[in-house]
Design a protein around this nucleic acid. Sequence first.
RNA 1: GGGCCUGUAGCUCAGUCAGGUAGAGCGUCGGACUUUUAAUCCGAUGGUCGCGGGUUCGAACCCCGUCAGGCCCGCCA
Length: 536
Amino acid sequence: MHWADVTAQALAHKSDTHVVSTGITPSGEFHIGHLREILTGDMIARAAENAGLKVDFVFIIDSADPLRKVYDFLGPEYEQFVGNQLGAIPAPKEDGNPDWDRFKNENWTYANHFLEPFLKALKEIGVEPRLIDNLDSYRSGRFAELSKIACDRADEIRETIERVSGRELPDGWFPWSPLNSRGGLDKVRVTGYEYPLVHWEDEYGESGSSDLTKGEGKLPWRIDWPAKWGWVGVTCEAFGKDHGAAGGSYSTGREIVKILGHEPPQPLVYEWISLRGKGAMSSSAGNTIGPIEALRLVPPQILRLLIAKSKPNKAIEFDTGMGLVTLADEFERLAARNFEQELSNEDLSRRQKVQIEDAAGAMKMATVVSGQNIEATAVTFRHLALLAQTKSSDEAVWSSLQSSGVIESVTPQLQDRLNRMRYWIQSTHFPVEMRVNILTQPNKAAIQGFSKEEAAILRSISHELSTCEWNKREINAAIPRSIESVPVAHKWLAYKVAYLCLMGMEKGPRLAPILVEIGQQKIIKLLEASVELLEA
RNA sequence: GGGCCUGUAGCUCAGUCAGGUAGAGCGUCGGACUUUUAAUCCGAUGGUCGCGGGUUCGAACCCCGUCAGGCCCGCCA
């Protein structure tokens, strides 16, 4: 059974209506790691619906969280906003400094700025959760009731956090962080509490009262999370392994939520996604790839497959090079399979059956629209990468595929894939192994090791190509013709020699169309130089 | 120090919850194919299940210990 179905089954045992929640702080550029948060939730929600449950899938935007520091991508003017809430400060402009105009005129905030492109990417991936803005929720009093309980029972909450996390909270700690005189959540001390007011004093010498029904402050994270479970009614949430550790925020949250009068949600801990060869993703280290960037390279189904096929507790290495080719080709293979037919085979061992079911489950989760059928395009990534590199026009790519009988007509899906492929090829992510590369210097090592026959073939190829008309058909005929005068068993050898001398490898893509693009002169020059090496 | 996760074929991982002859894909190698889609098809190759004990008729799986990697216990989502 697919992991999402396992969780859905656990939910089904509890109730037939559920709220599956996800949450992210919009503190900077979203990256593909955040996609796991959302997609894990989405897949659980989808599986639960498939199991006949009624599901509300929500995405809580943690816009009430403060700006932690002036990140590298921010200008120095952001110093004044450190500690202020992300949904209450202006978005950065190109130069990294605050865009006051948009903030004043449209209330365009820091949180909006980073959230918007992510939501756009989500839509393309087929994820459309109900959005809950956390700052708005505070301001409109959604947290009021539970904040009151937290403040009334501050001692119990304090005891819980200290006992479960094993860390000591400072004197004067209070389960409500009021906004100070400058709108920040730090540099402020709670001096008293009479519902609904929390009295405070800040380091600027000001004092005041924070009304917790109006969002003039927020609950600290370890209480904020369980309070959200409470008022939203969350019954299931997937979260990163950082929250999941003993003493982490889930283990305190599950006790605190009971103090607040609710039950903890069904947890599911997931591992991080890292970029291959670059370690864990971190915005400040600059080693991120955003969901938007990733979508330019691969179709959404393949991105979904990446998450769907890995169990949540497995770390994923996202590889924008050869790994992407492997992943895309795996997708095509899976799309071409008929799982129902495979499962109808009675002789399957339990193990084989599980494997087929998991593959089928992963593909079900990979579709952008739930329940939609994925059709194999019959064109592998490798093949398309090759065509896209050798044909400058899309028309030429399609006619090649049509004449070889791979496709009948050009579907929007194929056009879409070709567009992404062209983007990938001109990006820095495209792997060198895939790049069509004609040698500029003769392949000395290979040529010196040539047998008598191979040497003869090389001479012959050089002759044939310099005299043939420079088009695909003639070149195609010229290469096998080059062995006619040489007594060898297989014409395969002609190709081997050609590939070694022109591309430096034993096998390769169809030569003719590439050679046409490169031009006769250059090729002849290379071959003549190679022949000279033979004489030496 | 305390805790969680991970360790199975060259690579990526299933299989561990319900113990019953070690699995898949990729890769590699061989064969087929008289224009090569780095294609396709067929076949083969491949593992002391991190290590050591214990329980059991039987352990990748349960228990104890141990090694290695990652993470958390710092308001940090």
